Simulated assay, not measured.
Amino acid sequence: MAHAPIASKEPVGTAPSVVPGGLSALAPVARQTVQDQVYGELRENLIHGMFDAGEVLKIRDLAERLSVSTMPVREALGRLVSEHAVEPMANRSVRVPLITRERLDDLARVRRLIEGELTALAVPLLSPADIDELKRLTDAYDALAGGLIRAAREVSRLNHAFHFTIYRAAGSPVLIPVVESLWMQSGPYVRAAAAVYDGSDGAGATNYHRRLIEAIDARDADAARAALSADIGRAFDLLRGRVGDAEGSAADD
């Protein structure tokens, strides 16, 4: 699994511009620790479905892959455990949560609730330029969808950009981190759903995205919420009926 190496073990930041007026004119420099970088890399990979449900992540293996010591990896994993993106194991490793029917239903329900509300709030606030951007992202997604396995990460990035263009327009700094946490928890599920999707439903990969754009263009919050709910439900519905086998095999781990 490819990860970009962490470039430095020292805090990094962007130096402020020099402004006449002495020290009082300088703003604090934002710092990012190695732990922040490790956390960000793992978080991105979880969001974009680069880990399988049930995959065990060993601290030493991650540290070696990311070219860092074990301490920032341990701290980053602790943050992810607190966000329910991974779960601790007895041997100090962590595991991406298994797919269970209970967790599947809970994630789908909460995502529909929170993301549906953000979508409804965003509908009257999205500008024509925002709508054009949603169309551009959807077209780019369609162009890559035929090579879904090869371009899985880029497709996921486009999907993320599409949805968060809508969510950020709602103007709720409280809900955005909640949704980001839900996407971390959902990433392995979306990955599993993509692996079993056979195209038999006849719907294009961006069918619900286009329905969502149409609803936003019409300023129809109810229709936008319904399209979003269907989009979220599609991936989770694909896994229903297959969960029993996954739980059965997991019981032996």
Score class of each variant (00 low, 15 high):
residue 58 K to F: 06
residue 59 I to P: 09
residue 60 R to H: 15
residue 60 R to V: 12
residue 60 R to L: 10
residue 61 D to W: 09
residue 63 A to R: 06
residue 64 E to L: 13
residue 65 R to C: 02
residue 65 R to A: 06
residue 65 R to P: 01
residue 67 S to N: 10
residue 67 S to R: 12
residue 67 S to V: 11
residue 69 S to G: 15
residue 71 M to F: 10
residue 71 M to I: 15
residue 71 M to V: 14
residue 73 V to Q: 06
residue 74 R to M: 15
residue 74 R to H: 14
residue 75 E to I: 10
residue 76 A to H: 08
residue 76 A to D: 03
residue 77 L to D: 01
residue 78 G to E: 07
residue 78 G to F: 00
residue 78 G to N: 06
residue 78 G to L: 04
residue 79 R to P: 06
residue 79 R to H: 07
residue 80 L to K: 02
residue 81 V to H: 11
residue 81 V to T: 11
residue 81 V to I: 12
residue 81 V to D: 08
residue 82 S to T: 14
residue 83 E to N: 11
residue 84 H to C: 14
residue 84 H to N: 11
residue 85 A to H: 08
residue 85 A to P: 08
residue 85 A to S: 11
residue 85 A to E: 07
residue 86 V to W: 03
residue 87 E to T: 12
residue 87 E to M: 15
residue 87 E to N: 08
residue 89 M to G: 12
residue 89 M to S: 09
residue 90 A to E: 14
residue 90 A to G: 11
residue 92 R to W: 04
residue 92 R to K: 05
residue 95 R to W: 12
residue 95 R to C: 14
residue 95 R to N: 09
residue 95 R to V: 12
residue 97 P to G: 07
residue 98 L to F: 13
residue 98 L to N: 15
residue 100 T to A: 00
residue 100 T to G: 02
residue 100 T to E: 02
residue 100 T to D: 02
residue 101 R to T: 14
residue 101 R to K: 10
residue 102 E to M: 02
residue 103 R to T: 04
residue 103 R to P: 01
residue 105 D to L: 11
residue 105 D to Q: 11
residue 106 D to T: 12
residue 106 D to M: 15
residue 106 D to C: 10
residue 107 L to S: 03
residue 109 R to T: 08
residue 110 V to K: 08
residue 110 V to N: 06
residue 110 V to T: 07
residue 110 V to M: 13
residue 110 V to C: 07
residue 111 R to A: 09
residue 112 R to T: 09
residue 112 R to F: 11
residue 112 R to E: 13
residue 117 E to H: 15
residue 118 L to P: 01
residue 118 L to T: 05
residue 120 A to K: 05
residue 121 L to C: 05
residue 122 A to M: 00
residue 124 P to G: 01
residue 125 L to F: 10
residue 127 S to H: 07
residue 127 S to N: 06
residue 127 S to R: 03
residue 129 A to K: 15
residue 130 D to F: 13
residue 130 D to P: 10
residue 130 D to R: 10
residue 133 E to K: 12
residue 134 L to Y: 01
residue 134 L to I: 00
residue 134 L to S: 02
residue 135 K to L: 12
residue 140 A to V: 05
residue 141 Y to V: 01
residue 141 Y to L: 00
residue 141 Y to T: 06
residue 141 Y to E: 05
residue 142 D to Q: 00
residue 143 A to P: 02
residue 143 A to H: 02
residue 143 A to C: 04
residue 145 A to H: 02
residue 145 A to C: 04
residue 146 G to Q: 01
